[in-house]
Every structure is written in C-alpha cells, then in structure tokens.
C-alpha cells in the first residue's frame, strides 16, 4: 500500500531549479529519510508534500488523496521548524488547538505529552522554552492525532543527546505501531540509527538507496604480534587485512568478544580497538563529495 506518492515535482526559485522532476513512493509502513546538505531543497520538498508550497509542476498523493485536500491532515502530520510556534501561547494552548480541530480528547493531549516528555512545562509560555523544549512540543503536536503518515523536518535539531535518544526511540516506536515516517536531516550519523532507507537529494535530483546494503561495521585492532594474529583469525574464518599497521576486521559486536578472547588466549596483547561504521557515510561521500561546500547549494 502506497502512503505517499510523489510524481514529477519540479520547483524553482527564480532562475534556480531546486527540485527537478522528482518522483518517489513511500509504502506502508516504512521510515524513509530525506538526506541532503543544507539548502538542498529538503524543506521545500516537505512543504510541497504538505501543500504549504506550490510546485511548478507535478502531483502528490497522500493516502490515495491529492495533497490539496485538507482532510489528509486527519491522518497526516507535519512537524515543522520551531518558528511556527506562537511565542505568547503555552504549549498546552497549541496542543489544545490541534486537539480541537482534530476532534481529540483532553486525555489524548496528556497522554501524548507524557509520551514525549513535555508534560512538566506544558503550561509555560513558549517564549520561555529552550530549543529542545520547542522540539518536544512540535513533536507532541505532530503525533497528537496518531497519524498514518508523519513528516518530520529536522526533528533532532538542537536536542541534547538524552533528548535525541528519546526522540529517536519514539520515532522507532511510532513506526512499530504502524506509522509511516518521512524524516529529513542533513546529519547522516543521526539518521543511520533510525532507518537505512534514504532518499538523497542533490542538485534538484534524488537518489533512493537502501543503505543496509552498504552498511558494515569495521574494527581496527592494534596488536603485539600482527602476523601471528592474522594467521589465527584466518583460521577462525574471520576476514582480516593489515592496514596502516593495524588489523582491519569486519565482524559484528558479539563476534568481537570471541576474537578478543581467541587472541588473548594465544598470548597476543591488544593495545587498542577502534570501531568504525562504514557504508552510509561512504555512500554519502560518494554522492555529495567529501565536503558539503563543494556541493551546489540553493538559496531558499
């Protein structure tokens, strides 16, 4: 079942083409990340999907209905940038407004707030909120109606590690409960931990990838007797090479413990271990080059 269908979307600002004939589908239930450097057109695309912005051409269908139909928002939510909040209203005022329009109960507000963890400061005015508090409120606003499609624009922006973990877990939980999620970010490190389904956006074009295919964990080990260690590991069927005076091995975390005990049993001492996840970032670098600055970026 297709939740979101994007067909031939083109958008330009003046002479600058930001989105060039973009098409993709998101099936149910999937988490898809929209990744691209700053200014690549992520927010424009999300705004077009939610009909906040008019595309030059193309069509969008959400849950089988055109995105121009406001009723899609009974089952779709968009978590926007924190500038949309009313500074002079409280968090509760915002949630109550949405609950009123969506015909939701007061209990739903409290339940969602507890889930997000913003129930402690719900009655404070937004002008007194920190960036993280605002992000929490925006998330609570977005998930209040338990949407089938949740669109998140940089949801982890400005969050401290604890909050970021919480939000990440929440997103994964929502996904497990059956919500399809489209999430935008310029930080692949964050996205990696949520999904492997990535839509890269570059120069107005998109590249759809499943990074699970690329993703591998690599460990670099500095050991006392390198040649001996290589021999032992090869005997154990563990892929290993020597790189920059260190052993480079491709295994998962559990197998690492086995490797360590085998080497120690053979009298080889381990001086240092470095873990490196490769794949998604390498792919990102393949697409966008080593530095974001080298990319064409668009002023929006």
């Amino acid at each position: 079942m297709t939740i979101l269908q994007v067909e031939n979307i083109t958008k330009s600002y003046g002479k600058e083409l930001v989105l060039n004939n973009i098409s993709f589908n998101i099936p149910y239930p999937k988490i898809v990340a929209l990744v691209g450097p700053n200014g690549s057109g992520k927010t424009s695309l999300l705004n077009i999907i939610t009909n906040l912005l008019k595309p030059d051409s193309g069509n969008i269908q959400i849950l089988g209905r055109p995105n121009t139909d406001p009723n899609i928002f009974y089952e779709t939510s968009f978590m926007q940038d924190n500038s949309v909040l009313y500074e002079y209203l409280t968090g509760y005022d915002h949630l109550q407004f949405i609950a009123d329009v969506q015909n939701l109960s007061k209990e739903q507000i409290l339940k969602t707030s507890q889930l997000v963890g913003n129930d402690g400061y719900l009655h404070k005015k937004v002008k007194n909120y920190s960036l993280g508090m605002k992000q929490h409120l925006l998330l609570a606003m977005a998930i209040l109606n338990k949407p089938k499609l949740l669109i998140l624009d940089e949801p982890l922006n400005g969050l401290d590690p604890t909050s970021a973990i919480r939000v990440r877990e929440l997103i994964i939980q929502l996904h497990k409960e059956g919500t399809t999620i489209l999430i935008s970010s310029h930080n692949l490190g964050e996205i990696d931990r949520i999904t492997s389904n990535i839509i890269f956006i570059k120069s107005g074009q998109i590249i759809e990838e499943d990074l699970a295919e690329f993703e591998q964990v690599t460990y670099y080990l500095s050991v006392s007797n390198q040649q001996h260690a290589i021999k032992i590991l090869k005997e154990q069927q563990i892929p290993v090479i020597l790189e920059n005076d260190r052993l480079k091995i491709w295994i998962d975390e559990k197998s690492l413990q086995t490797v360590i005990s085998v080497l120690l049993n053979q009298g080889i001492s381990i001086k240092d271990i470095e873990k490196k996840i490769t794949g998604s970032e390498e792919r990102y670098q393949q697409i966008f080059g080593k530095k974001d600055e080298e990319d064409e970026s668009f002023e929006i």
């Binding site: 009723n71 928002f73 009974y74 500074e87 969506q102």
Partner: peptide
C-alpha cells in the same frame, strides 16, 4: 510574518 499560520495550514481545515 512569524510563520505561525503554517500550523493551521497543516491541519484538516480548508483555506
């Protein structure tokens, strides 16, 4: 000017 209108525009309310 402050973009708050976007909240209402992403709710099931016709223009």
């Amino acid at each position: 000017e402050e973009h708050s209108i976007q909240i209402a525009f992403t709710l099931p309310v016709s223009k």
